[in-house]
Design a protein around this nucleic acid. Structure first.
Lengths: 321, 321
DNA sequence: CGAGAAAGTTGACGGAGTCAACTAAGCGGA
DNA sequence: TCCGCTTAGTTGACTCCGTCAACTTTCTCG
């Protein structure tokens, strides 16, 4: 949460590396005194979880995905074949020998897989459901921050308990860091989210959360302003989640909901400095109708009111973009 | 964030294990083609970071802390000695041979250490300061949830940007899970934290955060009620952080601040079902003065008002316990 | 003093992992 | 069609990681 110096972060990561290496080592000790070694298990896992609908699995693809030595893989596969866990046919390409898991192979995999699951299950045995979810979230977050491409896709869902506070916190922190906006913004965030909860009109209002692997990646609110007007509020996407089209999907979700619900227009308040947000709104048919400078965030900033007419007479999305 | 089923969590952990094993493997590849192997580096790290003020380092302690084989360690140490990185004297116990790092050994360590730091630094090169802090926080959280004892101690600090929302979110989620309290509580949390921010009187009010290794572990608020009365609010400690005395320290901090600031009494509102919190308040001299049932949390619950007189005439803390 | 335990060393061994040489099969152009 | 190049996979040789058990030396405690 704090603005950690680069050295602190490096030390923390290295401490975590030592910790996790030890942990995985302890988890892997279960392979001792068993006829499956750790690389065996990794290979077996790769073979067993391969989607048969895809291209048949060859030694070279396994070798490449696991980053193992070709010769090493060859030897392990020979052993698997000898044990009757796999068969290797000749394919269209007579060099390649597509791997197929036998029934015995599947049983061996399930034995190993069950033991691994049990070991991990022991590890989290003392945790309640919130803590388990926290753990999964923290792990996904580590992956997202270190290798965003290793966690593709995202999901949109309605809000639930705890989302309001987290959204207020994240937006306050992100805007404080990127634009220096201060306590004024944090108060507005708190008020807006709390008021949303207090006045929530199911079916007429909603808050959607974008998630990547259960990590909160962005959000947007739609509230009823009266007179057939809906307001889009607090749109944001986490920095680690950008360039995935999450902002577009959130805005589309809002517009779709407003249209279905029968609102006549959709309005929103944004700021001139938020260039990418403004482009996003323009892309979806919004137009700026008013501009005014305020100092609610501790410094003068230029606010803008945007509008999107809905219904028959309104501009279709994309017309403006 | 969501109430993940046990199987989901196990699958996520195993995915993370695979991910992190690969990542550490990539980080360790830097040792290839260099005269220091990975276990060498671990040992060297252990020797170099050993506090000379403590008992002198012996092979057996290194072996025990790293969980390595005694024979293996012996061989590596022999190699280190041969390279002139360490010297081994005879200690009081003639069986033990205390290890001392030479100047050459320190240079070798710094070379290796610098390379490791550089590798990790590359890894986080693309992250801004908020993301780095998020990463460190997520890693610390994983450690805390899997091996709480591996992260000892805690710290108390005043609040900063983003804390309000996170506190409101965590308390809402935890009480929803443990007692089934619903949206009413979440609204109260949001209002209380936002009002605190809006009306914050520096020097007369404060919010303290307990942290374990930069992970939020609990919090407490003190607000001015007028007429010389201060109110202690929203005390909580994360489940993973319990049994460390964090609750006591937070309450002590509040009482100390209220006393110094010159408040005449400290009041608070709690609930009969929160047994451990009530014991905590009693331990610090608070007494229940009023009880009333309400339904703000979506079900009837019994609220209690507690009071601690401060100043000359007040009961000293501990008197009631 | 003697039994037993602890610190450390050494030999032997098996698994992990790499490297290079090799075979067999496909591919693509003259 | 042939020749050179590439790719899939195999094999032998090797190094390093890590364990086990036997062993020496020294300490501790009754």
């Amino acid at each position: 949460m704090k603005d950690a110096s680069a050295d602190d972060v490096i030390a923390t990561i290295r401490r975590f590396n030592r910790f996790y290496t030890g942990l995985v080592g302890a988890l892997d000790d279960q392979f001792l005194g068993c006829d499956v070694t750790l690389p065996d298990a990794r290979l077996l896992f790769e073979i067993a979880t391969h989607d048969p609908a895809e291209a048949p699995l060859t030694a070279s693809t396994v070798q490449a995905t696991l980053g193992m030595d070709a010769g090493y893989v060859s030897r392990i596969l020979a052993r698997f074949e000898q044990r009757g866990w796999i068969t290797r046919a000749r394919g269209a390409d007579a060099r390649a020998r597509p791997i197929q898991l036998t029934e015995a192979g599947r049983r061996a995999f399930e034995e190993v897989d069950g033991r691994q699951r049990a070991a991990v299950s022991d590890l989290v045995g003392g945790l309640d459901s919130v803590q388990r979810a926290d753990l999964a979230e923290a792990m996904a977050r580590v992956r997202l921050l270190l290798r965003p491409e290793s966690v593709p896709g995202f999901a949109i869902r309605p809000f639930r308990t705890g989302d309001m506070g987290v959204i207020a916190a994240r937006q306050s922190m992100l805007y404080a860091q990127s634009h220096g906006w201060g306590r004024g913004l944090e108060i507005i965030e708190g008020e807006t989210t709390t008021n949303f909860l207090r006045n929530f009109k199911p079916g007429h209002e909603q808050c959607w959360i974008a998630e990547i692997d259960d990590v909160l990646a962005g959000s947007v609110f739609l509230t009823d302003e009266g007179d057939g007007t809906a307001r889009l509020r607090l749109l944001y996407v986490e920095p680690f989640a950008r360039r995935r089209g999450i902002g577009d999907r959130l805005v589309e979700t809002c517009i779709g909901f407003a249209r279905e619900t029968g609102y006549g227009r959709l309005t929103l308040w944004t700021h001139t400095v938020l260039e990418s947000a403004r482009r996003l709104y323009a892309r979806h048919g919004f137009a700026s109708i008013e501009t005014a400078t305020h100092t609610s965030f501790g410094m003068p900033v230029q606010g803008e009111t945007w509008m999107l007419p809905l219904g028959e007479t309104g501009a279709a999305p994309g017309q403006v973009a």
